[in-house]
């Protein structure tokens, strides 16, 4: 077997170990699952209720019917689950490591530091949001009176991957900044309040803002594109553009992480 293949398998096994640790921890707090379920539904209601009111006396808004807009809401919730369940917990921990100087212990381990810190902690109970968003997708399809197409689902799956890579890269960029300005938790709030704007289809935004949220901060890529994919109306060039953007972002994030790490001198020295 080639060296790269062995490396890949080794990291896959490491990922398994890290995930198992998080799952075991989460199983200690099984009760959270029962409480968080209804809470997830309530927060979904905050996302859907304005749409319910808006679409009471109109069929279409800025090119989106109620059933179609539901898909954007569903993706908003799905990506919230991805961020809160897989990306947030680990990367908040890095910021703490940097502040306290305990990052040294991670750096000493014989594996890639970015991999180790990114997989340090998962919160499986946040997957409640995944169930809720599946419910919303179903509601959307029932409202539209049709099901998904195979091609649409394939595109949506690709975009889920793209969106996760994008969000993760944005996060790594934020964390890299933590090496320079230690109080970076502030940036995480800025990030989540920006992400709040991703709950509407991008065509709801007036012209200049729409450009900002598509080309500069890729909110449209995160929720509007996948929703269009599920509806079977995503343009191929958009899919391609999104994937290129995600690849570029992740390369940028990797470079920024390396640069930050190179000048990291621990907290004590």
């Amino acid at each position: 077997m080639s060296g790269m293949g062995r490396q890949f398998l080794r990291y896959l096994r490491l990922l398994g170990v890290q995930v198992r640790a998080s799952v075991l921890l989460a199983l200690q707090y099984r009760g959270d699952f029962l409480v968080d379920g209804p809470l997830s539904l309530l927060w979904a209601l905050t996302a859907v209720s304005p749409l319910l009111v808006v679409y009471r006396d109109r069929a279409v808004l800025a090119g989106w019917s109620f059933g179609e807009a539901l898909f954007v809401t569903g993706w908003f919730l799905l990506l919230t689950a991805v961020v809160e369940g897989t990306i947030n917990p680990s990367l908040t921990a890095v910021v703490d490591h940097v502040r306290k100087g305990t990052l040294d212990f991670v750096l000493m381990k014989p594996a890639d530091a970015q991999f180790l810190v990114s997989t340090a902690k998962f919160e499986p109970w946040k997957m409640n949001h995944v169930l809720t968003s599946a419910g919303i997708f179903t509601w959307g399809f029932v409202t539209l009176g049709r099901g998904p197409t195979a091609l649409g689902l394939l595109q949506a799956a690709l975009l889920l991957l793209t969106a996760t890579v994008l969000l993760y890269s944005l996060w790594i960029l934020t964390v890299s900044a933590a090496f320079y300005v230690v109080k970076v938790d502030n940036l995480t709030y800025l990030f989540s309040s920006l992400f709040d704007a991703a709950r509407w289809p991008s065509s709801f935004f007036p012209g200049p803002l729409r450009f900002v949220f598509t080309a500069i901060i890729p909110l449209a890529v995160l929720t509007t594109f996948p929703a269009e994919a599920m509806l079977g109306r995503l343009e191929g060039r958009h899919l391609l553009g999104a994937m290129v953007a995600a690849a570029a972002f992740s390369a940028l994030a990797r470079a920024a992480w390396r640069r930050s790490l190179a000048q990291y001198t621990s907290a004590s020295s």
């Binding site: 808006v54 502030n186 709030y189 709950r199 007036p206």
Partner: peptide, 29 residues
């Protein structure tokens, strides 16, 4: 700084204004 952070997390009215102004662009409610 924490207060400023907290303010950043209360931008919801602006997000809502985006939705309602899209509605109002087509016809007043």
């Amino acid at each position: 700084a924490e207060l400023f952070v907290w303010v950043l997390s209360t931008t919801m009215p602006l997000v809502m204004y985006v939705l309602w102004s899209a509605v109002a662009r087509e016809a007043p409610v």
